[in-house]
């Protein structure tokens, strides 16, 4: 039976059609938290699975079909396509590769290299009074320095530590684990939130305890720039945007270790930084 998922994402209308159960379930679970009246359709997708070899496909209207051999690759390709297209549609926003939470309606951005513990730390913080704003994309309005919500399911590469177990009904693909918005242990923050702090994460397996240090605006700007997804859409090749953010908010390097202690430290830093 045909199924249509309609989303309102960053003020853009997205429609995903599909009848095949696995691809439909994957996209709905991952993006369902952004379900809404799309208004005019800006991005129109069809997803499914070809008969014969178990090959998933996605096709955006006007573009060639892309295929994937497994669920993990399928979802990764869908994620990539929608993220790139949203960056084209919202060139006014400064997209940072980050997870974003809020505490008392102020946004906290977690930035890390792949495997740096961004999503795992985000998952843990959701158990400590933080609300969920976005994963993977941190879209910043440079005029207001607000971060817009992008409530894609929180994606984890591996099971988190036992202190923060996953619920049973999450999405597991061949590559990663995805916690849909309605399965998170905290509420979704559904409005843009002013950015209050940026934490650059570094996981040190030898660290006995987490630590945090304020970093200069120049260091923060350089680190932020390295994690910006659409710098060339902005003046000064995007460098000015990174500097603007780095100058305006508190920026820290966070060496993560024991996760509960890391969460307590982050909360304390934010409270002190108010």
């Amino acid at each position: 039976m045909a199924h249509t998922l309609t989303l309102r994402v960053l003020d853009q209308g997205v429609r995903v059609d599909g009848a095949e159960p696995t691809s439909k379930t994957l996209v709905t679970a991952t993006y369902g938290a952004m379900r809404g009246d799309p208004g005019a359709i800006d991005l129109d997708y069809t997803v499914g699975r070809n008969i014969g070899p178990a090959t998933f496909f996605m096709r955006r209207q006007g573009c060639e079909q892309r295929t994937a051999p497994d669920t993990g690759t399928f979802l990764a390709r869908f994620d990539e396509d929608i993220a790139i297209e949203l960056q084209k549609l919202r060139r006014d926003l400064y997209f940072v590769h980050a997870a974003v939470l809020t505490l008392a309606d102020v946004a906290l951005m977690l930035v890390a290299q792949a495997g740096g513990g961004k999503s795992t730390t985000c998952w843990a913080l959701l158990h400590h009074g933080f609300q969920y704003l976005s994963d993977e994309l941190g879209p910043v309005d440079l005029k207001t320095l607000e971060v817009h919500p992008y409530a894609r399911a929180l994606a984890l590469k591996t099971e988190p530590p036992t202190a923060y177990p996953l619920p049973s009904n999450i999405v597991r693909t061949s590559r990663s684990l995805h916690v849909p918005g309605d399965k998170l242990p905290a509420r979704l923050h559904k409005r843009p939130a002013p950015l209050g702090a940026v934490f650059f994460l570094r996981y040190d397996p030898l660290a006995l305890a987490p630590s945090v240090r304020p970093i200069s605006a120049a260091e923060a700007a350089a680190r932020l720039y390295a994690n910006t997804l659409n710098p060339l859409a902005h003046p000064g090749d995007g460098l000015d945007g990174a500097i603007q953010i780095a100058r305006a908010v508190g920026c820290f390097e966070l060496v993560t270790a024991d996760l509960p202690a890391t969460c307590v430290l982050v909360t304390a830093v934010l409270n002190a930084n108010k």
Partner: peptide, 23 residues
């Protein structure tokens, strides 16, 4: 290369090399 002074420190963007440096 593009360079900006940020609170006394330089941030240098080398687009050719896809590198950004903090001095």
């Amino acid at each position: 290369v593009s360079a900006r002074v940020v609170e006394g420190e330089m941030v240098v963007l080398d687009r050719d090399a896809s590198l950004v440096h903090q001095l």
